[in-house]
Write a protein that binds this DNA or RNA. Structure first.
Lengths: 153, 153
DNA sequence: ATATTAAATGATAATAATTCTTAAATAAGA
DNA sequence: TCTTATTTAAGAATTATTATCATTTAATAT
């Protein structure tokens, strides 16, 4: 899934390798549910019960600054994070507050082409994010968590 | 700008007409800066000093439930609101945390066409939101507030 | 391997945003 | 006008996030 292991990613970005940072990065990479800080902390504590809340916050902020992860904006007040850095979009559902990755290269290309041709006056575009809001029409037979619709076409 | 006055909008949605609700809706409609709850409260208090913080929160939530306004998700932790219900997109800038409306019918049509043709399996799409992240390249001569780039083409 | 040093962590306090609670006030309809 | 269900005000409570600072630790040079 990820080109390099967490340890190398940290080194590449000039960060000290600590067990806490490894735990945060590996946890985030292993989840496709765009967890909140609180969820990440909870998962880590199963294996590493002593990590402090503030540490997780600080680590996540460092990672965002370095561009290793992204903040995903949810409708509610909680920050969510995404370890995937390839261009992709997000499916949002109000029902459960779930955020699911949506990979669609054709769509990404179409949007990039569009804005390559049409400049927005007075604005330098750096990133295009699409939020697709709706509901899952599932028959509900698969597991609760991890709506892993990685629609890579 | 808006088809009907605030009073009628409230009645149409089965809400009692109170001065507080009128103030919130009119304030929000008069601003194109996607204010936070705190900003809205501040503006209202200039004319109506007694409104309670909790009241503004409750009113905004009621409006969102009724579909009269929308939540706009910012990268940070504060909720922002938008009184415009026509399809449009948003320009986000990290510099100042500004959120600006971006109207582009061609773009909206292109996205609608795209998803009319291509269904996302297991997902019923209700709304398409585009966040255009970047920086304003302004020469900085115009007023601080209200980057009202309503690029209606 | 050890010492050095800058950086990271843990614990906790502080702040900020939002929600909850309840009594008092008020809008809408009889 | 009177009645009643809603709404508001005020402040307490909760939750998310950030800041502080003493202690610990990773990386580097010895």
């Amino acid at each position: 899934m990820f080109e390099e292991d967490a340890r190398n990613t940290l080194i590449k970005h000039g960060l000290k390798v600590t067990p806490q940072r490894l735990a945060v990065l590996e946890t985030l990479r292993s989840m496709n549910t765009h967890p909140s800080t609180d969820t990440i902390t909870g998962v880590i504590r199963e294996k590493y019960p002593h990590i402090a809340t503030g540490t997780v916050y600080k680590i996540l902020e460092t990672f965002v600054e370095k561009g290793m992860i992204k903040r995903v904006t949810s409708d509610r007040d909680i920050m969510r994070f995404d370890a995937r850095t390839e261009p992709h979009h997000h499916l949002y559902t109000a029902q459960s507050g779930q955020i699911t990755d949506y990979f669609d290269d054709e769509l990404t290309r179409m949007l990039e082409d569009y804005f390559r041709k049409k400049q927005i006056p007075g604005f330098h575009l750096e990133e295009i994010r699409l939020q697709l809001v709706g509901n899952f029409t599932d028959t509900g037979t698969d597991d609760e968590q991890g709506h892993d619709s990685r629609h890579h076409k």
